[in-house]
Design a protein around this nucleic acid. Structure first.
Lengths: 239, 239
DNA sequence: CGAAGCATTGAAGTGCGTCAACAATCGTGG
DNA sequence: CCACGATTGTTGACGCACTTCAATGCTTCG
C-alpha cells in the first residue's frame, strides 16, 4: 500500500532500490479512519506524520467565528502533514473527507533519514515545497479568480493529481466531497457553490453526481479555470 | 549584513558557533535591487537563492488576464526563494517593493550543507514550512475574512515579523507598500483597499502616512483581524 | 419510518467592484 | 528652482457577484 506513495515519488524523481526500501520502511503501522474525523488537531504536539494510502483528507483552518477554510486537499500518495516533522505542531487540523487508510511515519525515522540519506531528505523537502506551490495557486484562486473559475480550477487540479497515482483516467474520477466541503475549499457559501456547479453543468463542461465527476469538455474547463499545470511540477528532477 | 538573517534564525533555534559560520558562508555575493524590479522570473531555471538583507520583496502570481496576487511578503532576514533549491524553477515571480539588498546563495552551497550538516538542512526545511504556514493563514484571510479583517491581519502579521528582526517597535514600522500593492496582497481592488484603510483610521486603530504605519490600538486591531500569532511559530524548537 | 444531511431554488440584501473624475505627491529634466 | 507628467490617494455614483435567509424535496441510514 505504500506503493501508491512510491508511484507519486517516481513521477518526480528516480529512486534506487535502497532508497525505495528506506521509503517503505518509514511506515511503522497502518491506521484506518472513518469519514469526517479529525486525524490531527492543530496545536497538539506530534511525533509522527501521516502518509495517506487511500481516501481523501484535507487541511482545514477555522476562525473563532466558525468559518472554515480548506487550505489543501490530499489524496492517496500524499504526505498530509510531513511538515509537522519540523513544525512539531500544526497551525491547522487534518480531517478525513472519506474513509481513509493512513501510514504512520514516526518523526524519528524521518530524522534518521535526513542524517543518513541526505538525498531523500532533499526529496521530501521538495514535496513540502510542492504543497506550498499548490497552496500558492489556491491563494491566486481565492484572491483573483471568479467562483466559476475557481471551481473549474479545482476540478482540473484534482484530475492531474489523481492521474499521477492512477485514480483518474478517461476524464472522470471519484470525488468524495460534498458541496459544503467544495465551498470551504473555494471560499464560497454552499448556496453559491451549488449555483456555480449548475452553471458548469449547464455549459456542458462537467457532470457531477453521486460523488463522481465527469469532465465533458476539458479544453473548455481549462479555459474557464485559466489552468496551467506547471505549478504541479509534473516532471522529473535531480536531487 | 547576514546578521539580520541570523537574528531571525536565533528566534527559532539555538545555533553553535560552527553552524553560524556555515550560515554566514552561504552568501557568495551581495546585490542591490531598485524598487519594482523583477528579481526572479517564474519558470526560469535557477542555481541560487536570495537572502533578503534589507528592503521588502514579494512573491507574486499573475493571471493571463492581468490580475495579480501577492502570495507572501518578505522582509529583511527572510530567504525569499530558498524553495527554488528543490523546485529548480519557481511558479511565481519575486519582485522588489523597495530598494533591496540581497545575499546570493548558490544552490550548490545549500546542497553541500544538507550533506555535511543535516541539522542545518532540517532548520532550513523548517523555514520553508514556516513560509507555507504564513501562506495558509493568507488563504484563510482570502477565503473567509472581510476586507477590513484582512487588512488588519496583514498589519498585525507584519508587525510581529518585523519585530523579530528589530524593524518594528513602539507600535510603528516602515511599510513601503502602496495601496495598490496592499490590495494585491488582500485580493481587493485599489479603491476598496483605500476605503478599508480609511475605515481603520476612522475607528482609531491605525495611522498610515508617508509609508509609515502607526498602530494606535493593537488590542482592537487584533480583535478586528481575529489575529493569533501561533502560526508564526515564534518560539524555539529542537532539530 | 422518522431524523438528519444534502442538493436545490427563490427572493432580497450587501460588500465589494467598476468607472470616472480630481487632488496630492513625487520624480525628473530643464 | 520651477514645470510637468506620472504615480498615488481619494471620492462619488452605480452595478453586480456573491451572500443571506428561508423553504422544499431528495437521499441516506439507524
Amino acid at each position: 500500500m505504500v506503493s501508491v506513495h512510491l508511484k507519486k515519488l517516481r513521477k518526480h524523481v528516480t529512486l534506487n532500490a535502497q532508497e525505495e526500501q528506506i521509503v517503505r520502511s518509514l511506515v511503522s503501522e497502518v491506521r484506518k479512519f472513518a469519514p469526517d474525523q479529525v486525524a490531527v488537531r492543530g496545536g497538539e504536539p506530534l511525533n509522527s506524520s501521516m502518509m495517506l494510502l487511500s481516501g481523501w483528507m484535507a487541511r482545514v483552518k477555522d476562525l473563532p467565528s466558525g468559518e472554515r477554510q480548506v487550505t489543501e486537499l490530499h489524496v492517496a500518495g500524499d504526505f498530509t502533514d510531513i511538515h509537522s516533522f519540523t513544525l512539531k505542531c500544526l497551525d491547522h487540523d487534518v480531517v478525513t473527507m472519506s474513509e481513509c487508510s493512513v501510514g504512520i511515519v514516526p518523526h524519528e525515522r524521518i530524522r534518521e533519514m535526513t542524517e543518513t540519506h541526505p538525498r531523500l531528505g532533499r526529496i521530501y523537502w521538495f514535496l513540502t515545497n510542492l504543497d506550498a506551490a499548490i497552496q500558492r495557486e489556491w491563494a491566486l484562486s481565492l484572491g483573483q479568480r471568479s467562483a466559476i473559475s475557481r471551481m473549474a480550477h479545482l476540478f482540473c487540479e484534482m484530475y492531474e493529481r489523481l492521474q499521477v497515482v492512477g485514480l483518474a483516467s478517461g476524464q472522470r474520477y471519484d470525488i468524495p466531497l460534498t458541496q459544503r466541503e467544495l465551498s470551504e475549499c473555494l471560499g464560497l457559501t454552499v448556496v453559491h457553490a451549488n449555483r456555480t456547479i449548475q452553471e458548469l453543468r449547464r455549459r456542458g463542461l462537467i457532470e457531477l453526481e453521486n460523488r463522481v465527476l465527469i469532465i465533458r469538455d476539458r479544453k473548455a474547463l481549462d479555459r474557464v479555470a485559466q489552468f496551467d499545470d506547471s505549478y504541479l511540477y509534473l516532471d522529473k528532477r535531480e536531487f
